Simulated assay, not measured.
Amino acid sequence: MIYRLATTTSTNDEARDARYRHGDVVWAERQTAGRGQRGHTWHSPEGENLTFSLVLEPRFLPVGEQFMLSMAVALALTDTFTDYGIDTRIKWTNDIYAGDRKIVGMLIENNCSGPMLARSIAGIGINVNQTVFDPSLPNPVSMALLAGRTFDRAEVLGSFLRHCGNRYEQLQAGERENLQEEYRRRMYRLGRRHRYRTVDRGEVEAAIEGVRPTGELLLRHADGTLGAYLFKEAEFVIDRRND
């Protein structure tokens, strides 16, 4: 069921209500306290983009494999953009990029029951029809800017939900290796040397080799050593666009 709200503090906060069950979507036109990863806030003009939360109940998934759920949802997003002829990549951990520009932000929050996940809320913001962005944002882009036309947001959401259902079924069926390999192939900056800030070495040049099922980013450093970094232990250095 899709629940459309005019205003809420955060769709993730709203989706915590027990009345929302597996597969339900909370879609809000306006969030007064939307949030993203690393403590960032999320702002979106009303009526232009998609800001929603998807409720999932992956009780089959061990807590130690929760990043596999993130993989499945991220792959579903890239599948969705493929439907519209837009090539995208997954920027670890959860953003989706078109070229070097961000088109999706995602924040997944999990609750556990013993060793297994009980309830997960995937908060997703897709830049759909917005064409003018806050100049303080370093590298945003939208479907409209990339394709030169506007999109039906409900149609885009429907496409994502279909793909997410398919990816979730893969996860539930135990197709971990297939999901991991597809996620790796679609990673932003895979195999190319770029700059990163890491907790152990400061700013370095390294190349992404992949990601572990537990979520650690694998970086091959210039000296040949391989580093494994958890969320917040490595940060991409991306130059601000001047155009």
Rank of each mutant, 00 (worst) to 15 (best):
V211K: 05
I208E: 10
R176Y: 14
V204D: 10
R197K: 13
L190N: 07
M187F: 11
L171M: 13
R176W: 12
L190S: 03
A206T: 13
I208Y: 12
L171N: 08
E205W: 09
R185N: 09
V204Y: 05
E182V: 01
G191N: 08
E182H: 02
T214V: 00
E216T: 04
I208A: 08
Y183Q: 03
A206E: 06
G191R: 09
R193C: 11
G191D: 04
R185W: 02
Y196W: 15
L171D: 12
Q172T: 10
E203H: 06
E181Q: 15
R201I: 01
E175G: 01
V211F: 06
E205Q: 11
R184C: 04
E175M: 12
D200W: 06
L179Q: 09
G210A: 11
R185C: 08
R189G: 02
Q180R: 09
Y196Q: 08
E205Y: 11
T214E: 14
T214Y: 04
Q172S: 05
G210Y: 07
R186W: 03
L179A: 08
G215Y: 07
T214S: 14
R193S: 15
A207P: 07
R176C: 02
V204F: 04
Q180C: 13
Y183P: 00
Y183C: 02
R201N: 06
Y188W: 15
L171A: 02
R197E: 14
T198K: 06
Y188S: 07
H194V: 00
A173S: 07
E181N: 13
R201C: 00
E177G: 00
H194M: 04
T198R: 05
R176H: 14
P213R: 08
R201F: 03
E175S: 04
N178P: 00
M187A: 06
M187C: 04
R186F: 03
Y188K: 01
V211T: 10
T214D: 15
R176L: 03
Q172P: 00
V199N: 11
E216C: 00
E216N: 07
E209P: 10
R192Y: 03
E216W: 05
R176V: 13
Y188E: 09
E209V: 07
E181W: 03
Q172A: 11
P213E: 06
R184N: 04
L217M: 11
L190Y: 01
Q180V: 05
E216S: 09
A207Y: 06
H194A: 15
H194Y: 13
A173N: 12
D200N: 11
G174M: 01
G174Y: 01
V199W: 02
G210F: 10
R193W: 03
R197G: 09
E177N: 09
Q172H: 14
G202Y: 08
R192N: 11
L190W: 06
R193M: 10
E203M: 05
D200V: 07
A173P: 00
R186E: 10
L179N: 05
